[in-house]
Every structure is written in structure tokens, then in C-alpha cells.
């Protein structure tokens, strides 16, 4: 409310309406965040069932996770699938973003729509379609099959993030490099890439997360011997809610938050380099995104 008053909130501004609004906001944030904080204590519970608050503390569920060949195999498979997805999606998506963000050719809008559509179309549809195709190609139950399918889902995320980074790059820097005699490849390698590198790395992190957390495609493509971590969790939750899942979930939350913080730091760097929100010219590129 005081945003257009240059951020000055005088004592008189603290009226009932604002107090109510801030209280409401606090409750909404609690709704958004509380469930995740509830999992953490549950995972250290000494009980055999899910009860809150836990009657006592123990590491039994972590011990169960770290000594279970099935859970560890699922985790290792997920890490490998996510790493492969990250490499494929970041490579393909960055190239596509370079083409789409700057290129002026016919059908660019349509192409952009196609590239973004795996993010928009319900995953269940993509999942059964890819399952049908991969069953014929005998790619179900393989690491390559999972990574290829996840790449389809991760490409749009990479394209969106890298495109946004590119919007902020001053084309004059590239023109200057070329006027000084650099060819296109050299210009890209020595000028464009260093500027967008934090954006690309942050896109890679998100591509990893997309694959690592993906359940629905994994549900169809996993075989009894190749279950990803989310598929293993899904089965565990469906059969019986045992608190091992709480321990695994806590580990997933800690890992995700660590990756997100890393991406956030990189984004801060990217914005300093290309002039994102907060420095001049930050708002304008966003407005352009409206017309793909």
C-alpha cells in the first residue's frame, strides 16, 4: 500500500486494514510453507506410524533409507537420468533460445509455441504418448528412455530462462566484437556466452530438478528393476504411508533448496552482467516477452 508513497510507512499508516491484510498474508504464506516444515520432524520420529507431534526422536527412517538397496538404487538412477537430461536439455534449449530470441524468420511465434508446449500440455498426455512410442522402440525401463522423455519436459524451462537472459544482452556488444574482426563463433564464445553463462547454468540446475522430481513419465517408463526415486516414493505412498518417505522427502527438500539457492545466486550474477531488474533497462525486456 505504501509502494507508491516511495516506501515510506509513517506510524499513522498502520491502520486496521493494513494489519488485517498483513495477517492474512502471513496465514497464506504459512499455508504455502507449513507442510514442508511438518515433514522434517516426522522424519526423525521414533513412531512406526505418521503421528504429529512425534512421540520421540530417532534416526531409524534415515537408517532404513541408507541401508535399503532399493532406495539407494532408485536415488542413483534418478541422479544419472537427471544429469543426462540436464546435459541434453541445456545444450538443445540454449541453442534454441539463441535462435528464437534473436532470429527474425517466418513462423518464429509458432516455433516458440511448439517449444514451450511440453510445459503447458498435461504431462499425463505426454507420458502415455511417449510410453506408446518407447514400448515399440524398446526404450521402456532404460536410462536413455527416461532421460530422453525428461528432456522433452526440460527443454521449455531452459528456453524460457535462457531467452530471458538473452533479452538483457546488449546486441551492440556483439556488433562491436564483429566489427573488431571476430567471426560469429568467436563472438559467441568470447562475448555472448560469458555474459549469459550464469543464466545457462541456472537453466541447467532447473532442468536437473525437472527430471529429478518427475513422477508421471517415470511411472510409465520404469520397469521393476529401473525405478526412479519419485517412482519408488509413489509406490511407497500408495502401498503404505511409512515414514521412510518422510526421510527421503526431507533429503529431497534439502537438496532442492540448496540447488535453488545456487540458482538464485547465479541469477543475481546474471542480472548484474546483463542489467536485469534493479538496474537500468530491466523492465523493458520483460515487456517484450509478451508478444512471442
Amino acid at each position: 500500500m505504501n509502494g507508491w508513497r516511495d516506501g515510506r510507512a509513517g506510524p499513522g499508516d498502520w491502520d486496521i486494514a493494513r494489519l488485517a491484510l498483513y495477517t492474512l498474508t502471513g496465514l497464506i504464506l504459512l499455508f504455502l510453507l507449513l507442510p514442508m516444515f511438518v515433514i522434517v520432524p516426522i522424519s526423525f520420529s521414533s513412531a512406526k506410524f505418521l503421528t504429529f507431534p512425534p512421540p520421540g526422536w530417532s534416526l531409524q527412517w534415515y537408517e532404513k533409507y541408507f541401508t535399503s538397496p532399493a532406495w539407494l538404487a532408485a536415488t542413483w538412477l534418478s541422479v544419472r537420468v537427471a544429469a543426462l537430461t540436464m546435459v541434453l536439455a541445456t545444450g538443445l534449449g540454449t541453442l534454441a533460445a539463441l535462435g528464437l530470441a534473436r532470429g527474425r524468420f517466418r513462423g518464429r511465434g509458432l516455433l516458440y509455441g511448439l517449444v514451450l508446449s511440453p510445459m503447458i500440455i498435461p504431462v499425463i498426455i505426454t507420458a502415455i504418448a511417449i510410453y506408446f512410442l518407447f514400448a515399440r522402440w524398446e526404450l521402456t525401463g532404460t536410462l536413455a528412455g527416461l532421460a530422453l522423455a525428461h528432456t522433452v519436459l526440460a527443454i521449455p524451462v531452459v528456453v524460457v530462462i535462457v531467452s530471458a537472459t538473452l533479452q538483457g544482452v546488449d546486441p551492440n556488444l556483439e556488433h562491436a566484437a564483429m566489427n573488431l574482426g571476430a567471426n560469429r563463433l568467436r563472438t559467441f564464445w568470447r562475448v555472448t556466452l560469458p555474459i549469459i553463462r550464469p543464466g545457462v547454468i541456472s537453466a541447467a540446475i532447473f532442468a536437473f530438478i525437472v527430471s529429478f522430481d518427475e513422477v508421471i513419465i517415470a511411472m510409465f517408463l520404469s520397469s521393476p528393476t529401473t525405478a526412479t526415486l519419485p517412482k519408488q516414493m509413489w509406490d511407497g505412498i500408495r502401498q503404505e504411508i511409512d515414514p521412510t518417505i518422510a526421510a527421503v522427502s526431507t533429503l529431497v527438500i534439502v537438496g532442492s533448496v540448496a540447488l535453488l539457492l545456487l540458482a538464485e545466486v547465479l541469477r543475481g550474477q546474471a542480472q548484474r552482467l546483463v542489467g536485469g531488474p534493479g538496474s537500468r533497462g530491466g523492465q523493458e525486456p520483460r515487456a517484450k516477452e509478451d508478444s512471442p
Partner: peptide, 10 residues
């Protein structure tokens, strides 16, 4: 960005 599965389980 935290897994939908984890949030649903929560």
C-alpha cells in the same frame, strides 16, 4: 520448485 509428490505427501 519442490517436488509435487513431496508436497502432496506433506
Amino acid at each position: 520448485w519442490i517436488s509435487v509428490l513431496v508436497r502432496t505427501y506433506a
